[in-house]
Simulated assay, not measured.
Amino acid sequence: MSKSKPAVLLKAADGPVASPQTRILDVARALFCRDGIHATGIDRILAEAGASKMTLYARYGSKDALLRAVLTEEGDDWRRRFFARLDQAGPEPISQLRATIPALGDWFSGGKFYGCAFMNAVSEHRKDEVWLREMAAAHHRAILARFTDLGTAAGFAEPATLARQLLLLIDGAIAALMVSGDASVLDIARRNLEAIVNAALRTEAI
């Protein structure tokens, strides 16, 4: 059986080797997202990172603590890229809301789409793992806050309701894309987003 491709490059072509703790985090993030948390053992992470167990446990303490660090970084990075993509649609809040599905499309077609890291983590663990659910909820709250701000700026009567509708839409689209791998999901999601935004516009006009 051939060996799997390393999850990350440990050294840039023209840069220094990253620190052991950074390599551990980068490799764990790539493997947890691509291959799954339970399918990825500590020994594999350390082998690909070229790091020791002493370094891992001194810095992170446990696999759960490493997962917490991975989810923190993954969530921060995902939201940064997602919000930046909305910003690229221009200053108008409705244009940014309508950029939601194209932003998902960019992610889906970018070659590293493995679904939502938070939904994947919750699904792989016992449902009473409160800390995981709290991290996922915090990720959702940050997205809801952005959508609510955009709805408020657009003058919608119920921006918080709009935000919840859009969050439910993108969660469903991400799950459907993960299961089916079918890009037509994005067309359906886009039409649903238009219906949500247009309904909010009609309510505003009343």
Score class of each variant (00 low, 15 high):
Glu92His: 14
Val185Pro: 07
Met54Leu: 12
Ala157Ile: 12
Arg98Gly: 03
Leu193Tyr: 01
Ala89Tyr: 04
Asp87Ala: 12
Arg133Gln: 14
Ala7Tyr: 06
His139Ala: 10
Phe118Asp: 03
Asp182Arg: 13
Lys5Gln: 13
Leu67Trp: 06
Phe118Arg: 06
Ala39Cys: 01
Tyr114Glu: 09
Asp106Gln: 15
Leu25Trp: 01
Arg191Gln: 14
Ser62Lys: 06
Leu162Pro: 00
Pro102Thr: 02
Lys112Thr: 15
Met178Trp: 10
Ile24Phe: 09
Ala163Glu: 03
Trp131Thr: 05
Arg85Cys: 10
Arg23Leu: 15
Leu104Val: 11
Pro102Asn: 08
Arg23Phe: 08
Leu144Ile: 11
Ile94Glu: 15
Gly181Asp: 10
Ile37Ala: 03
Glu74Ser: 12
Ile45Pro: 09
Val179Gly: 00
Leu166Lys: 00
Arg34Met: 03
Ala51Val: 05
Arg81Pro: 00
Ala175Gln: 11
Thr203His: 10
Ala183Cys: 02
Ile143Lys: 01
Ala205Gln: 13
Arg98Glu: 14
Lys3Leu: 15
Val17Arg: 15
Glu129His: 11
Val122Pro: 01
Ile196Leu: 12
Trp131Ile: 06
Tyr114Gly: 01
Asp14Thr: 13
Lys127Gly: 05
Ile196Arg: 01
Val17Gly: 00
Phe32Ser: 09
Leu67Gly: 02
Leu177Gly: 12
Ala136Ile: 01
Gln96Asn: 03
Met135Ala: 14
Thr40Lys: 04
Ala154Phe: 06
Asp106Ala: 15
Ala117Gln: 08
Ala39Ile: 01
Thr152Cys: 04
Asp43Ile: 02
His125Leu: 04
Gly105Asp: 12
Thr22Gly: 03
Arg98His: 08
Gly151Arg: 02
Glu134Arg: 07
Asp43Tyr: 03
Met54Arg: 14
Arg59Pro: 00
Leu66Met: 07
Thr100Gly: 10
Asp149Trp: 00
His38Lys: 12
Arg59Ile: 00
Arg141Asp: 13
Arg191Leu: 13
Gly75Leu: 08
Asn192Gln: 14
Arg141Gln: 15
Gly151Ala: 01
Pro6Ser: 05
Ala58Leu: 12
Glu74Arg: 11
Ala28Arg: 04
Ile101Lys: 07
Ile24Met: 09
Ala117Met: 05
Leu132Tyr: 05
Arg79Gln: 11
Ile206Phe: 09
Asp87Pro: 07
Ala136Lys: 12
Leu186Arg: 04
Ala13Trp: 10
Gly111Ile: 14
Ala175Val: 13
Ala51Gln: 08
Thr40His: 05
Leu25Phe: 04
Val17Glu: 12
Leu56Phe: 13
Phe118Met: 11
Gly151His: 03
Leu71Pro: 01
Met178Ile: 00
Ser19Gln: 09
Phe113Ser: 06
Ala189Lys: 08
Arg85Thr: 14
Arg164Trp: 02
Ala12Pro: 13
Met178Ser: 12
Gly90Ile: 10
Ile24Asp: 04
Ile188Ala: 15
Asp87Gln: 12
Glu92Pro: 01
Ala205Tyr: 01
Ala138Leu: 11
Ile196Phe: 15
Gly155Tyr: 05
Gly110Leu: 13
Gln96Gly: 06
Ile196Met: 11
Lys112Asn: 14
Leu166Ile: 15
Ala99Ile: 04
